[in-house]
């Protein structure tokens, strides 16, 4: 007898207690668009990691990487089976360049998010937990960063530091600190008053321990949503920066810079603007899907159902 009956109320004792994260995972994979997003990101990530395996280096003996391999006999070719996305004015295979460009996008997105999550969450925790002048100081700095549109801030910083992949990542990362700090702070303010924080204080845990072990885990879900939405913006901004020539410098291909080349040849080669842009669009769309899926899955109103 595993079931206890009392007043028409059936409680199944065999049922395992459902954990928060398992519930989130379950409602996430039920969301079709979110799963589609994960699929696209996985596909693009695998392509980026295994780029040398899925592209052809037409002349492996020279020192040029596959994406720089030029074939002057076949410039400006429209898409075909040998050149899936056509070739550019120097006979470089566009598909190969898009695959390698995915590496840049992914790298920038991940590292920019690491920077902004780390700094933003720390700042938000400190501001929310300590309050008083620390809070005011941190939030004033955050407001100051917010006074700039994020793309403008990134352009400005890259203009100061000089265009490179590292500086683009740094600039994008700093631009996203405010959103993380704000989300974290807002959560900390409500969690700070909870009983378990009080009990942690009562048993003599120090502030550092309370912040990271009692409060931080409970602010995770909005932060995770923020990360996936931030990825989409980071990739968008990176593309804009490299389109303006302020991102990673040639010869390394990036989607944004490929569009610059495409812009110059737009009257002759439509494929040079369509495909790199499509890659940006799909990646950004996929991160948006994932972010929305996570938000829905982590919404407390939905979990209670």
């Amino acid at each position: 007898m595993n079931e206890t009956k009392s007043d028409n109320l059936t409680i199944n004792l065999r049922r395992k207690p459902t954990s928060l994260w398992r519930n989130i995972f379950r409602s996430f994979i039920r969301n079709r668009t979110a799963v589609f997003g994960v699929f696209i990101i996985l596909l693009f990530t695998l392509c980026a990691i295994f780029a040398p395996l899925i592209t052809v280096d037409i002349n492996p003996d020279n020192n040029r990487p596959a994406y720089e391999e030029m074939d002057f006999d076949s410039p400006k070719l429209p898409p075909s089976l040998t050149h899936l996305a056509g070739t550019d004015d120097r006979g470089r295979d566009s598909f190969t360049r898009i695959v390698y460009g995915g590496r840049v996008s992914l790298q920038v997105g991940i590292l920019a998010m690491l920077i902004s999550t780390f700094i933003g969450v720390t700042a938000g925790l400190a501001a929310g937990y300590y309050g008083k002048w620390i809070d005011s100081l941190i939030m004033r700095i955050i407001d100051a960063i917010l006074a700039f549109p994020s793309l403008l801030l990134a352009i400005l910083m890259v203009a100061i530091l000089g265009p490179s992949l590292r500086n683009a990542m740094l600039a994008i990362g700093i631009g996203f600190i405010p959103s993380f700090a704000r989300v974290t702070r807002a959560n900390v303010l409500s969690i700070r008053e909870k009983e378990y924080v009080e009990s942690a204080k009562a048993i003599g845990a120090n502030s550092w321990r309370i912040m990271w072990l009692s409060i931080f885990p409970n602010t995770l879900s909005p932060i995770i949503v923020q990360i996936s939405l931030g990825m989409s913006y980071a990739i968008l901004i990176e593309a804009s920066l490299s389109f303006l020539g302020l991102g990673i410098q040639p010869p390394t291909p990036s989607w944004g810079y490929m569009l610059t080349t495409g812009r110059e040849l737009i009257e002759y080669c439509w494929w040079l603007t369509v495909f790199p842009g499509l890659a940006i669009f799909l990646t950004v769309l996929a991160w948006n899907f994932i972010g929305d899926g996570l938000r829905e899955a982590m919404d407390p109103k939905q979990i209670r159902r």
Binding site: S240, F281, N288
Partner: peptide, 14 residues
């Protein structure tokens, strides 16, 4: 939301 405005611009030109 997802299509960068400069790419939309390029597509419009095209």
């Amino acid at each position: 939301i997802a299509a960068p405005s400069f790419w939309v611009g390029l597509m419009l030109i095209l």
